[in-house]
Nucleic acid binder design. Sequence first.
DNA 1: CGGTTCCTTGAGAGAACTCAACGTCGGTGG
DNA 2: CCACCGACGTTGAGTTCTCTCAAGGAACCG
Lengths: 252, 252
Amino acid sequence: MAFDISHGSRAKPNCGMCPAAVACLSGSASQDDGPRWSDMMEPHSPVFPEGKSLFMAGEPATMVYFVRAGCIKTFSVDEDGNERVRGFHLPGDVIGMDALGSRCYPSSAGAVVPSQVCAIPRARLLELMSNSPLLMRGLLSRASQDLASALAFSGDYSADQRIAAFLLDMNDRLDHRPGETQCLRLPMSRREMGSFLRLATETVCRVLTRLEQQGSIELKNKAIHLKHAERLADLAAPVGLVSRMGELPLAA
Amino acid sequence: MAFDISHGSRAKPNCGMCPAAVACLSGSASQDDGPRWSDMMEPHSPVFPEGKSLFMAGEPATMVYFVRAGCIKTFSVDEDGNERVRGFHLPGDVIGMDALGSRCYPSSAGAVVPSQVCAIPRARLLELMSNSPLLMRGLLSRASQDLASALAFSGDYSADQRIAAFLLDMNDRLDHRPGETQCLRLPMSRREMGSFLRLATETVCRVLTRLEQQGSIELKNKAIHLKHAERLADLAAPVGLVSRMGELPLAA
DNA sequence: CGGTTCCTTGAGAGAACTCAACGTCGGTGG
DNA sequence: CCACCGACGTTGAGTTCTCTCAAGGAACCG
């Protein structure tokens, strides 16, 4: 993890110091908004231990969260108690945008690994958006990207294609030191991965094993070395997931 | 169809006269916004014959559309030329909200049956949203609902469950005179239905036939009579699709 | 160390797909 | 009016992919 959450838990947010701030604010606020942005935030950035939930589906949506460190999943639970992961949120990602227009969170959210988030009251964010078209544009842009990503994964693709696309997506989004060999350290379990990709846990395992036998990847538990990213990209091409690195620059 | 598009094609939008206006503006604008709203619109409401496309994926997003009559599908085309329907949009629905934050439309849009839409320049809408928090709230609310619906259908459910949920959703959204027996007239082909639900055309047919044999529905080509909506609802329950009739009232 | 959860692999079952054929509908032109 | 055509809809047979059930191994924690 790029940001050690063991120190400074419950620290007052200071976006100037936060390694995730670049991603949080990218395309979302002008230079001037920086200080105001920090001031908006709740005074503490709570730490959530693994498994702890931020909020439950149906709960009144009071806050919007920005992930500072760790990994947060959003999910819903069907009547049989089965969990369905809707998405994984990494440092710099926003959680709760889909509740901006409604009173309640449409899904639950919980920490996949120990995580830290910054919170901003939903009403304050709406107000801020009204005052800053640039911020509104930026946040809408993020929401659009999340939507596009969700739609891409919702397609009817084979297990191999979905997993290849997932690995590449996580590789894009998890920050890893440049120059370092592409070694993913996935925060989530096989079960959570399968839940997100609509695959049985066993199928996830089998596909990963198959990809390893083909020499495309190398498995070391949750660490995955992408040996032939190109081959994965070929496999994942039909999914049509565009890299989120291609951020919208600040210019309108 | 509740609104005969054979007359008044290319008519100047007049939301006071339009049967879809209630849905368009529901929760989206205050009383005062009504006239301003009409003025925003492009001077003509173009008619799109079946198959005609409104815009293509990747095209610069200049307009946001409101469906006035007919049925518009949004879709993407993969590298093999296969069409994947992302959603069906009925009178009162918005198209292009997912492009508000980006420069280009993420998917293509085309008429499923002869259809009429009202267009509003994207920039004008963004401007209007900045000036009217209520409008912003309303439109975000719609976007949230669309997202929730898309997520519900993206779940890993059986063909029967997805089709039952789809029929009930269409029944909710297609306006039919109250008191009339619940007789759906689906605008889309089996192929389009399957494309949306991630099912082969043949599977759609088989499931519909099965539902008919069970006495749940009655098929007359594209007209479908829901004989036992309850049974369908039981089947579709796990999909967790909430009726869109439960609109957010105007009150904050 | 137990105990638990997660990961992995195998065997069999089932759901949906593909391929193929045929029926139906709506339009077009002789 | 009827024959023809193409697109759409329906049904059957066989295949494939993924799931379920089952069991053993590995990692983690008190």
